[in-house]
Design a protein around this nucleic acid. Structure first.
Lengths: 234, 234
DNA sequence: CGGGCGATTGAACAAGTGTTTAATCTGGTG
DNA sequence: CACCAGATTAAACACTTGTTCAATCGCCCG
């Protein structure tokens, strides 16, 4: 009934049934996590478990197909939406559209479980943020950093990670119908503190930062773990 | 051989074998996630699967016992370490001690999977951060916020969530022996961007914040989801 | 010594998993 | 129409899972 493709559900070399199975899998994985059984997905798609492995080889093959579909969809959708550099806005906008909500939920499930798609996604977001922050610096609205790469990664991890945690605690077992509303609520609670922190910071004076800069080499320290048993930086 | 208790492994009404099973379960859950089988845990503890359910009723009972143990351990350890308000420092310090690393890893597994322990933990961290930030405000080193509760939650979610994501992508399947080193690396990459953001902010001017404050009621808006189909705030 | 009681075991059970296999259905082509 | 290739099914397989059950072991108390 609901074709996740938003138009072109089928791709090169894929039969209509295969794409229907794959879309049902995305929806079921989004709802129940990746421990959902093949028979459940098969029932959702109105087919048999055997047919799934006939088309995708194995459950892992099915998951790879889902990953690929979601990733390609994200790539295509990214250029149509104005991003805030962290991907949060992009996901938020996508979650509003009922048709795309399962994709966002599937994505968060992926990050919950780890794996290739999650890693690619976060790197994707980091490179987006890199471009966005660089443009902001050039335009004079974003302060330059002593280590731009590190800051970019830091911001992307913060934004994505807090969203993931929030989803895990409040939205993982929720019906997909409630998902857009939950996402709106998350953004609403987020906006003010984020803007405050981004424009005014958190600390009153610079002593902590300056103190830190006294003790470590400036831009990019050794990327590999040095010795140093002191873990406390107060 | 390695008693996770750090001294008093047994508690009221618990036989020595039961606590040995529970500690083995914590270690195994930390290593493999909660899908680890009872027989694996039983083998780790040198017993049989049947004995586990004899002592804990079910696998869920075992997990509850593990949760309780870890939570109580965190409570006891919290007062011995100086926290930075977000719990990151606390976990980092604990991860340095080889004996406690499995507990931290178990905790992150819990947050990965959601559930009661994770929810309690994050609320715990939020209330810690609340006290810490309030003290900072009173001492004049932390800027006051227009909505202190929201900012506290925001900061706790950011810190915990980014740590969780980082762990999921880089450390979930790592040997527990490497875990302390991975944690040190994470803290090292984190320190500079965090201090920069906290003391200098990210944006050069206040226009975005002021613009936002023009459109929403100041301190705490309606907590329930209002209508408003416009999700874009530029 | 004897009886009992909890700890502990090994085997069995029932339900679930992903996957395989042989058979059937279906549609297009010579 | 005959034929074949792919789609599709139902059943079986091998395996793992959590849980149950009866039997045994070991120790403490009377």
């Amino acid at each position: 009934m609901t074709s996740l493709g938003g138009g072109s559900g089928e791709r090169d070399g894929e039969t209509a049934t295969a794409s229907r199975i794959r879309d049902a899998a995305i929806e079921r994985f989004a709802r129940d996590g990746f421990r959902a059984g093949l028979r459940t997905i098969a029932a959702d798609a109105g087919v048999t478990a055997g047919l799934i492995v006939h088309h995708f080889g194995s459950k892992d093959g099915l998951r790879r197909a889902c990953d690929e579909r979601v990733l390609e969809f994200m790539r295509r959708e990214k250029e149509k939406a104005l991003t805030d550099g962290t991907g949060t806005m992009l996901l938020a906008q996508m979650a509003q559209v009922e048709q795309f909500a399962p994709m966002v939920q599937y994505l968060l499930r992926s990050m919950q479980a780890g794996g290739e798609l999650a890693a690619q996604l976060i790197e994707h977001m980091i490179s987006d943020a890199e471009a966005y922050l660089s443009a902001g610096e050039a335009a004079g609205v974003v302060r330059p950093s002593r280590d731009r790469a590190a800051r970019t990664r830091y911001l992307a991890y913060q934004a994505t990670g807090s969203m993931l945690l929030w989803f895990t605690l409040h939205g993982a077992d929720a019906e997909p119908e409630r998902f857009p509303a939950l996402f709106r609520q998350y953004m609403g609670e987020l906006a003010l503190p984020a803007l405050e922190l981004f424009t005014e910071g958190l600390l009153v004076d610079r002593s902590m930062l300056d103190e830190y800069l006294m003790y470590v080499p400036d831009p990019p320290p050794a990327p590999h773990d040095a010795a140093g048993t002191d873990g406390t930086a107060s």
